[in-house]
Deep mutational scan, measured.
Amino acid sequence: MGMPNRKYADGEVVMGRWPGSVLYYEVQVTSYDDASHLYTVKYKDGTELALKESDIRLQS
């Protein structure tokens, strides 16, 4: 078993793309699913969504 190939840690605050949009919002990573390679993130309004790594970026 190798290390999970994840870029962002639980609790890390990053920018997540809103689905169907080009806009990124501040989100907190809450979990990562090794099987689906999706991150569960929480937006400031409390919305929780699963995002692909390509829809997440570090805060500038």
Score class of each variant (00 low, 15 high):
L49I: 13
T47Q: 09
L23C: 14
H37P: 01
V27H: 01
G2K: 03
D34F: 09
R6I: 04
L51M: 09
L58H: 14
K42C: 08
I56C: 02
S21K: 07
K44N: 07
E12D: 12
V29W: 01
Y43E: 02
Y39E: 00
P19K: 06
G2D: 14
M1E: 15
M15A: 05
V27R: 00
L38H: 06
V29D: 00
E12M: 14
H37F: 11
K52H: 12
T47K: 08
R17M: 06
T40Q: 09
P19E: 05
V41Q: 01
T30W: 08
R57H: 09
S36A: 10
Y43N: 07
V22R: 13
V13G: 03
A35C: 10
A50L: 15
L58R: 15
R17N: 03
S60T: 13
V29S: 00
K7Q: 07
L38D: 04
D33T: 03
K42T: 10
W18E: 04
R17K: 10
D10M: 07
W18A: 09
K42D: 01
V22K: 13
G11E: 03
G46T: 04
A9L: 11
Y25G: 04
Y25E: 08
V41M: 02
T40H: 11
A9E: 09
G2N: 07
S21V: 04
I56D: 01
T30Y: 08
Y39H: 00
K52G: 09
Q59K: 15
R6D: 02
V22E: 14
H37A: 14
Y24L: 04
I56T: 02
L58P: 15
T30Q: 13
K7R: 08
L51G: 00
P19D: 04
T40K: 10
A50M: 14
P4M: 10
E48I: 15
D45R: 02
D10K: 05
Y39S: 00
M15K: 04
S36L: 11
S36Y: 08
R57T: 09
D33Y: 02
E26C: 12
R57Q: 11
W18C: 10
V29H: 00
D34K: 08
A50P: 08
G11V: 01
Y43L: 14
R57M: 14
P19Q: 05
S31E: 05
V41E: 01
D10P: 08
V41H: 01
D10I: 13
D45V: 03
P19Y: 06
W18H: 07
G11M: 05
S21Y: 04
S21I: 03
S31I: 02
Q28D: 02
V13L: 12
G46R: 04
V22W: 13
V29I: 14
S31R: 09
Y8L: 03
K7I: 10
V27W: 03
G46Q: 04
P4W: 07
L58D: 12
L23V: 12
